[in-house]
């Protein structure tokens, strides 16, 4: 049900663009105003969210240690999974962010008669998540050719690598195929694996469908309903140079694509997609395990009521003396008002 709602929501968004930019002919709204608004909201929303996180301090240094600590000189430390220096943390974060290190550990528990538990290797999520994110990144960077003139060599090279199979005209991008497959996997595992289905929210399906919608509309535009790429570039260059104009010959499919991208940008800062920013700030990953080497200061540390030794001795002095335990004050100096 949650998946279907989310799917309909994406359909509705497509319909909005179809009616608005297609039938209604509101090209300026869909080609200029909404994209500008979306980019502004994305940037502002993203920054504000990160600032909001940053405002809360990290009172305690709480890394999750995943290997041997820095200890005695003859014990080999795991410098990446249990870093004690900033460089170690940088490496740990690098592996986490670039290679999804933690997800790579994933296993699946199995119950067998015996009773016996087994932990099967389960790297599919890691693999498809990696494929999904990297194809997304590549596609994003590839699009930079529409926002630059002359197009830097890097983007051109990326494009030719991505299209190196040279299947069809225009040649098929590998990432187009990969992202569709990967996003489909991510969707299917959400509905097929009972536990994941149980915890999934509409907010988990919606961005997946939205991204699939963006990808499919892009593919459609490139391979099937051909759009005049020269006009599109004129439009996109107009946007980045702040001289927006709507050239002739840009098809409705383009406006649908751009509208869905705009929705994604607006949705991003308010959603779980902020994991992109959050992962950098996660205190269990981005802190060194140098806890006993360097005192971490808690900015809101406040004094608390403690039970002092004096109060303790006052209560037990007699028993302590009797047991031969040393005391600070001898028995006779005991205060009169003791309960």
């Amino acid at each position: 049900m949650k998946a279907i709602y989310s799917l309909f929501l994406v359909f509705a968004l497509v319909l909005v663009a179809l009616l608005g930019a297609g039938a209604g002919g509101m090209h300026y709204l869909f080609g200029v105003i909404i994209p500008y608004v979306a980019v502004v909201l994305f940037v502002a929303g993203f920054v504000m969210r990160v600032i909001r996180w940053g405002k809360s301090p990290v009172p305690f240094r709480i890394p999750t240690t995943c290997g041997q600590e820095f200890s005695l000189p003859w014990i080999k430390q795991n410098k990446i999974d249990n870093p004690s220096t900033t460089w170690g943390v940088i490496l740990r974060m690098f592996f986490e962010i670039v290679l999804f290190r933690s997800l790579f550990r994933n296993t699946r528990v199995e119950l067998h008669d015996g009773p016996k538990l087994a932990y099967a290797s389960n790297k599919w999520l890691w693999l498809f998540a990696l494929l999904f994110h990297y194809s997304f990144l590549t596609i994003f960077l590839r699009h930079m050719r529409l926002f630059t003139e002359p197009v830097p060599g890097f983007f051109q090279a990326l494009e030719s690598v991505d299209g190196m199979l040279q299947i069809g005209v225009p040649s098929l991008y590998l990432t187009d195929v990969v992202i569709v497959v990967a996003a489909t996997y991510l969707f299917l595992r959400r509905v097929v694996i009972p536990q994941v289905r149980y915890v999934s929210l509409p907010a988990d399906y919606f961005p997946l469908f939205l991204i699939l919608g963006i990808v499919l509309s892009g593919i459609f535009m490139r391979y099937f309903v051909k759009t005049d790429i020269v006009s599109v570039k004129e439009l996109t260059m107009g946007l980045v140079t702040f001289h927006p104009r709507i050239p002739e010959g840009v098809g409705t499919i383009f406006y649908i694509h751009v509208f869905l991208v705009s929705v994604l940008l607006i949705y991003f800062p308010f959603s779980k997609l902020m994991h992109m920013g959050g992962v950098f700030l996660s205190p269990t990953r981005n802190l060194a395990n140098n806890n006993r080497m360097k005192i971490h200061v808690n900015p809101w540390n406040y004094p608390v009521k403690v039970h002092t030794y004096e109060a303790y001795e006052d209560e037990f002095r007699e028993k302590m003396v009797e047991a031969g335990l040393p005391v600070e004050k001898p028995l006779e100096q005991q205060p009169e008002n003791k309960e």
């Binding site: 301090p57 994933n106 779980k272």
Partner: peptide, 18 residues
Amino acid sequence: ERFRSFKIFMDICVRCGA
């Protein structure tokens, strides 16, 4: 307001189920 960990952990879970 006191724990960045709490704030971030409230916001960024994608429910991947790992």
